[in-house]
């Protein structure tokens, strides 16, 4: 039995999200791991090292999810895959549910770990609970929550790359342009390993320098609370929480954020939470691992200096 894993590439290399889902597919241990890549790939894109034995390569970088879905279904059928794995990022979430319907397969959205038998764990109620979901179909489509599994090098050898194509019909959605939100080389927020986030306690957009300095010292991405996005202090795409982005970094540092339940919903899956707030009663401290009761304008520069001194 084999597993098909859908991989996005950037400049010919599998993205971190792609390497993570390939690692997940290998760890399923249900057989040969075969990757499907639509678009640019150089060599095996780094996929052999995470356990992929073969890459099915479609040279056409498809941008319409109905075409991507058809391609995936054909690839899965051609190798008799019983599991198809995607990253649960924006791209994966637009294709994987379509594939599940097309293949009459049970769908697990946002799996956070390996299954026990056919039971998968996923987050529900915006991170306030987990559901243990049993899939009753033979074929399963899984979208894995970004950063929930990690990249695991298996030391495998270079994967074989074979051309693959299928009749995917015409593109019905036309892509007229793409604007990157993050500058070249920085990771998208849902995939970030470290995040420094700030709220209304920063008083105004002109004060974000101390937040950015800390983020830079840690190699972290920046995020913010919703009011900060709404007031235009920071770009909307940095807003985390129930109505914003959900993140699960290893380290989340919240500066001048009160810790409202809707904010916590987007960040409470972080491994370690650090809160810096002048108010010892701020609800965020109850959800934190480490806290500093203090003024961000004094604490952040000192913290940055301490990290830079490492």
């Amino acid at each position: 039995m084999s597993v098909l894993v859908y991989i996005s590439t950037q400049a010919g290399k599998a993205t971190n999200a792609g390497l993570e889902v390939a690692s997940y597919a290998s760890a399923l241990q249900t057989g040969e791991v075969i990757a499907l890549v639509a678009g640019d790939i150089s060599g095996d894109g780094g996929l052999g090292a995470v356990g992929v034995s073969k890459v099915m390569h479609c040279a056409d970088a498809l941008t319409d999810n109905s075409q991507q879905s058809k391609l995936t279904k054909e690839a899965a059928l051609s190798i008799g895959a019983k599991a198809v794995v995607f990253s649960g990022n924006s791209i994966g979430n637009s294709i994987a549910p379509r594939v599940a319907i097309a293949m009459n397969a049970g769908y697990v959205a946002g799996a956070t770990g390996l299954p026990e038998g056919k039971t998968y764990t996923r987050n529900v109620f915006s991170g306030k609970a987990t559901a243990h979901v049993q899939v009753t179909t033979e074929t399963i489509v899984i979208a894995v929550t970004p950063n929930s599994f990690g990249i695991k090098n298996t030391g495998g050898s270079e994967a074989v790359v074979e051309a693959f194509s299928a009749d995917v019909g015409e593109a019905r959605v036309t892509l007229n342009g793409f604007t990157p939100t993050s500058s070249e080389g920085t990771v998208p927020l849902p995939e970030a390993i470290r995040v420094v986030s700030a709220g209304r306690g920063l008083k105004g957009p002109e004060n974000w320098g101390i937040v950015e300095d800390l983020a830079k010292a840690l190699g972290a991405s920046t995020a913010c609370s919703r009011p900060v996005g709404d007031m235009g202090w920071r770009p909307h795409h940095e807003h985390v929480g129930q109505t914003g982005i959900t993140i699960r970094p290893d380290l989340y540092i919240a500066c001048g954020i009160s810790g409202a339940i809707q904010h916590l919903a987007g960040v409470n899956q972080s491994k370690v939470i650090v809160v810096i707030n002048t108010d010892p009663e701020a609800p965020f401290f109850k959800a934190a691992d480490y806290g500093i009761v203090g003024d961000v304008f004094e604490v952040l520069p000192k913290l940055t200096a301490a990290i830079n001194a490492l």
Partner: peptide, 13 residues
């Protein structure tokens, strides 16, 4: 509550 981001894509399919 369900956090699947799946239903509209499935309707489309």
């Amino acid at each position: 509550d369900n956090n699947s981001s799946a239903v509209p894509a499935m309707i489309a399919e």
